[in-house]
Every structure is written in C-alpha cells, then in structure tokens.
Amino acid sequence: MAQAAPSVITDEMRALVGVDGPPVTLEVEKTNCRMFARAVGHTDLIFYDEDAARARGYRSIVAPPGFLGTPVFRPGVAAQGPPGAGRGYSVPYRRVLNGGTEYEYFPESDTICAGDTITAVSRISGFEETEGSLGPMLITTRETTYTNQRGKVVAKMRGTMIQY
C-alpha cells in the first residue's frame, strides 16, 4: 500500500463548505431556449413556439432540460461563469475535468419559462481526495440553487469537479 499523498485540503477550504457564494443573475430568454433546444435536437414545440407552450399550460416557451438561463455578460467585467467557480482558494493541481452534473426540478413549485429571471446561489458541498489512474485527485462537489423572480425554487444543480 503506497503512502497517501499529503492532503491539499486546507482549513481555508474547509471553512467554505456549506457557505453560500454571491448570487448570480441568469436570464431565460425565448431565443436562448430555442438555441439550446435546437443544439440538442429537441422536436417538442413547447421549446420553440410560445403559442404551443401556452396551449399546454405554460406561461411562455419552456426552458429545455438542462437549460437554467444565461449569465448576464458585460464587456470588461469578468464573465460570471459557472456559479461558484473560482472561490478564493488555490490547489496545487493544474488540470481540471468536469466530472458530472445532476439537475433537480420542482415542477409543483414552478417551471422555468422564457421571461424568467433566475438568481443562482452556489455552495461547496464537500471536498474529497482520491488516488486514481491519473494520480492524486481532488473532487469538489457543489450545489447551486435556482430561484425565480416569484421567489420559487425551480431547480438545483449538483456538479462534480475533478482537479489533478
């Protein structure tokens, strides 16, 4: 059994676990819903046509599965990027892999539709270290909560980032 690599998880990082990051504003626009649906290859018209969406009881064009809005971009200001990215600590690994993503929806609360403004708040759920075929790795899991302009939680996203 090889000696485990020394931990890269610092007290500073541990202190961030469970702490909400700054809120990020996301806009859900008709054209973005359509672009997302077209890129995936969706054929259901609720993702493209407002009348079709309304006929099915939705407020407007529906955000396709996995689309949670577009961060507001301003020239000269660093992109808001994926909520919660780069939160004031550094680790001695240079390479990053997106390990996976899970979306949770709350349709009884509300459905994400075009015209919505979403506030996303992200927190680190935990850090974990493993030794893989690529060497020692740090696995960071985050959970982001998406709340719409009506104050309804409409989605949560859990993401896994692998640094090695």
Binding site: D44, P65, N98, E102
Partner: peptide
C-alpha cells in the same frame, strides 16, 4: 434530458436527471 422528455409525454415530469462524464 431529451430521451426522458420524449418518453414521458405531455403528462409526465422530469424530477431529476444527470450523468457522470
């Protein structure tokens, strides 16, 4: 997400989905 959406039809709802890369 599309696989699920197309299967569940108008009367179904996606509650949760995701995958590892």
């Amino acid at each position: 997400g599309q696989l699920l959406h197309d299967w569940i039809g108008e009367g179904g709802q996606i509650r949760r989905f995701g995958c590892s890369y």
